[in-house]
């Protein structure tokens, strides 16, 4: 089976700033990977490149190709013609939720079905009973079915993030890319969102790539960690190899930003993660 996500020597430059430099990365179906790194290390850019929301450099050193499940997303600085086909099975979760705040929670989840349904019916908003049932079930699964009729913006941050996850579920995503999904949430909501993401990934065999700047969350929830610094992947391996000394070596002065004081005390890890993966 083709890789859930395959980046082949992808670079992205903003003016003089090399945000992502010659990155290659393969994520297998069903795999869960945490992408860690300081602010500005290129995590978000990498996720936006993977989903085709931004284009890689045309004249990068490599081919700059991104494939998902064998379907091309972009190559050589150009979006694939049928990028919508690739996007259908890529669910996106953003730091700021990216919901339409004035639309109902249910509608925000229903748009996940747009890629699969008849374009005209989707454009007119004529979702059928089956799609509505699926959307409602997805909301129930993330625990907010009771808010289905409310406007999305009336929900708390953590609830909105779970709406976004429900949208990815309705989409039938086989790969979910989450860009700092818990960065603007309080600790309790953050844990709830991470639990939901990991549970969803495990139950449906969805590959999950989550960018985080909290290393403790990364080691608690994920087996495989990819660390970025200055646009390059500087570490790709099991979470058990991550420890404070390693992080300091990896990030130098900016390590403080990554190591929360709680890191080596916390993990009351979610059931989703095996305790042995946390570092002591």
């Amino acid at each position: 089976m083709a890789a859930a996500l395959q980046l082949d020597r992808v670079s992205k430059t903003y003016g003089q700033m090399r945000a992502v430099e010659n990155v290659s990365l393969t994520i297998q179906p069903g795999e869960r990977v945490a992408l860690i790194g300081a602010s500005g290390s290129g995590k978000s850019t990498l996720i936006r490149l993977a989903s085709g929301l931004i284009l890689a450099d045309r004249n990068g050193s490599g081919s700059g190709a991104v494939h998902s499940f064998g379907i091309k997303v972009q190559e050589g600085g150009k979006l694939a013609r049928d990028v919508r086909t690739a996007r259908r099975h890529i669910g996106l979760v953003f730091q700021q939720f990216a919901l339409s705040g004035r639309l109902s929670v249910l509608t925000n989840v229903l748009v996940g079905a747009l890629g699969r349904m008849n374009a005209l019916r989707g454009t007119l908003g004529l979702f059928n009973a089956d799609e509505r049932r699926t959307a409602y079930a997805a909301l129930a699964e993330v625990g907010i079915a009771q808010h289905a009729a409310k406007r999305a913006r009336e929900l708390s941050g953590g609830q909105q993030q779970r709406v976004a996850i429900a949208r990815a579920l309705v989409q039938g995503a086989k790969l979910v890319l989450a860009d700092e999904p818990i960065a603007s949430l309080d600790p309790k909501s953050a844990k709830r969102v991470m639990d939901t993401l990991v549970t969803m990934s495990r139950d449906y065999g969805i590959a999950l790539v989550v960018s985080l700047h909290q290393v403790d969350y990364a080691t608690a929830y994920f087996d495989r960690i990819v660390a970025m610094n200055a646009g390059r992947i500087v570490f790709d391996g099991p979470a058990s190899q991550i420890n404070a000394a390693f992080l300091t070596e990896l990030y130098g002065a900016s390590a403080e930003e990554l190591i929360l004081p709680s890191q080596f005390v916390v993990p009351a890890p979610a059931e989703a993660a095996a305790p042995s993966q946390t570092v002591s």
Partner: peptide, 19 residues
């Protein structure tokens, strides 16, 4: 952001505008 959210689901240009 909401427009990117719709784009991410594989929606068309018109659907991005509407939703």
């Amino acid at each position: 952001a909401p427009v990117e959210g719709i784009r991410g689901t594989g929606g068309t240009w018109l659907q991005e505008v509407i939703y």
